[in-house]
């Protein structure tokens, strides 16, 4: 039977494959090639070897954006997951109104990054105005502003995944631990947490990649202000491409480095998830 299907390649696969080739595969290969070239449009590209990469790594803006992004990612991943896990624990105890609370906590996740950025610009500037400053006054304000925004957006999403994980823990396990005299904390430590480990892995990596790749929120909330000190990697790449003439090649080299970091993170996740699946 697969033989009959096989002849239908042009119907089933070709349209999607063609779009995939044009929108992803070709631009991806061109992107790698162009990262070794000097160019302003694609046609005038001239090979310069690894010079773009050297320039990228000696570019202060890039290194500062990288460091900012790493710090932001670490703080966001920890705070989002702690808060989401605690909320999930609360919302799986049969408290009245659980569904309503879940609905509210998840809502910000559906709002797009640009809109989120401007909402929080208003709120944070309103609070900071009481102290006579604004978001763009000090890079620390922008940093914590982005962390708060990211928490507001992602906590509900991660909470949903944790709730699904906690509800899958067999009731018998909890009861058996209880009968053996385990306290609430002990049950959390030795029963709940190990059993929801798969959800924890998923949430850690979802928050990790989403924080690392953040663009829209960064653009709307601070746009790098003051003087580029709150620029994250994705925004720095964008600025290098479209803000500086003659730097397109460096922008593309930065993008390749960015891709490699994201790929390493994703690959680590894949390996960890696979290993866990084998164990269980």
């Amino acid at each position: 039977m697969p033989g009959t299907i096989k002849k239908y390649f042009p119907v089933f696969v070709l349209p999607t494959l063609l779009a995939f080739f044009l929108a992803f595969f070709l631009p991806f290969l061109m992107g790698i090639w162009l990262s070794f070239c000097n160019f302003t449009t694609v046609v005038d590209a001239e090979w310069v070897g690894i010079r773009n990469y050297v320039r990228a790594f000696s570019n202060e803006d890039f290194l500062r954006a990288l460091w900012f992004t790493i710090r932001f990612t670490v703080v966001s991943v920890v705070s989002i997951n702690l808060a989401a896990f605690l909320l999930a624990l609360l919302l799986t105890r049969g408290i009245k109104g659980t569904n309503l609370f879940r609905t509210v906590f998840f809502m910000p996740n559906l709002i797009g990054g640009i809109v989120l950025g401007y909402i929080w610009m208003l709120i944070l500037n309103g609070i900071l105005a009481k102290f006579g400053v604004s978001l763009t006054y000090d890079p620390r304000y922008g940093f914590w502003g982005l962390v708060i925004l990211m928490n507001w957006q992602m906590i509900g999403y991660m909470m949903i995944i944790y709730i699904a994980g906690i509800q899958n823990v067999p009731t018998e396990l909890q009861e058996a631990a209880k009968m053996d005299g385990a306290t609430g904390m002990q049950r959390l430590r030795y029963v709940t947490v190990p059993m929801v480990m798969p959800s924890i892995t998923i949430c850690l990596f979802l928050t990790l990649t989403n924080s690392f790749k953040l663009f829209d929120q960064n653009l709307a909330l601070t746009n790098g202000a003051p003087s580029g000190q709150t620029t994250m990697l994705a925004l720095d790449i964008y600025n290098t491409f479209y803000g500086r003439i003659g730097w397109e090649g460096v922008g593309q080299a930065k993008a390749v480095i960015f891709f490699i970091i994201v790929a390493i993170i994703s690959f680590t996740q894949l390996v960890l998830t696979r290993r866990r699946e084998v164990e269980s």
Partner: peptide, 12 residues
């Protein structure tokens, strides 16, 4: 393709 960030291909 799922793991490739948009910045990698945005220009091309």
């Amino acid at each position: 393709s799922m793991i490739v960030p948009f910045q990698m291909v945005m220009f091309t």
